[in-house]
């Protein structure tokens, strides 16, 4: 079966659209609302979903995602539950790709082979483990391949060109370009600084290129959409969901946050 990520990016390319990729931490603000929030995001223009697997020691994340992880863990959310959310999401949506994003230790504890099998069975299409660079992925890679799950790889401003080739050789689905040196949610993105790295990266890989870290507004999303094949938005969305007092409220907040971004991105192409 073809991976949904490939199908989605092919369709977007044909339509001349840039992928909108929201990130939410699974189980935050409330575990019972996560699946509805995911549907709301799709209804408001999301093309790919990144679902954060909460981890106790998120050393690459800023305060917003740290706090979201802590809240989710305190409500009993773990990798097994995250897979259940995806399974439930798939009952109504069999097309939107879902990528799990997080840190390696929960998968270590689950067991690579068991995880790959259960994740594929739940409808997961890719995983992005922040603390697992291609060098350390060898053992996990075999299990992912067996079940058709894509490893999504990061490229950073500090990544050398030689290394871009090595990463491109391992990566599937899309490349995730980290827009600046720093942690998630920091306020340091200057869109103009993306022009050169994106051009260089494209000369090393034919994969679709998504850009994330620091994109907070319709304006910045629209600017990045002019350069990249995908725009990832995480911390700003999580902050928008914070304080929601009901499932309905959370879905409304998700929609109100994402719809203007979708609109701005689509207009940047016209």
């Amino acid at each position: 079966m073809k991976n949904r990520i490939d199908s989605r990016f092919e369709a977007l390319a044909a339509a001349g659209r840039t992928a909108l990729i929201p990130f939410v931490t699974a189980g935050d603000p409330d575990p019972a609302w996560t699946v509805s929030v995911l549907h709301a995001l799709v209804d408001s223009g999301a093309d790919v979903l990144e679902l954060g697997v909460p981890f106790s020691d998120p050393s690459a994340d800023g305060p917003v995602i740290q706090a979201a992880s802590e809240r989710a863990i305190s409500r009993g959310v773990n990798l097994r539950r995250v897979l259940e959310y995806v399974r439930e999401f798939r009952r109504k949506d069999s097309e939107t790709p879902v990528v799990l994003m997080g840190y390696l230790n929960p998968i270590e504890r689950y067991g690579y082979a068991d995880f790959a099998q259960d994740a594929a069975g739940s409808g997961v299409d890719g995983i992005l483990m922040v603390d697992c660079p291609p060098e350390e992925m060898e053992n996990l890679r075999g299990d992912l391949d067996d079940h058709g799950i894509f490893p999504i790889c990061l490229v950073a401003p500090t990544t050398t060109e030689a290394r871009m080739d090595a990463i491109a050789a391992q990566a599937r689905g899309y490349l995730y370009y980290v827009s600046f040196k720093g942690i998630t949610g920091a306020n340091r993105l200057e869109e103009s600084s993306l022009v050169d790295p994106v051009r260089i990266l494209r000369s090393h890989s034919k994969l679709p290129l998504a850009v994330g870290f620091g994109i907070k507004s319709p304006e910045s999303a629209s600017a990045v959409a002019g350069l990249a094949d995908g725009v990832v938005i995480g911390s700003a969305l999580i902050a928008a969901l914070e304080g929601a007092d009901s499932e309905q409220d959370a879905c409304a907040r998700a929609a109100n946050f994402l719809a203007p971004i979708r609109e701005a991105m689509d207009n940047s192409h016209s």
Binding site: A60, L104, D131, P157, I167, V178, K181
Partner: peptide
Amino acid sequence: YVSETLIH
């Protein structure tokens, strides 16, 4: 086992 930015 670190994020890509730290590798360099």
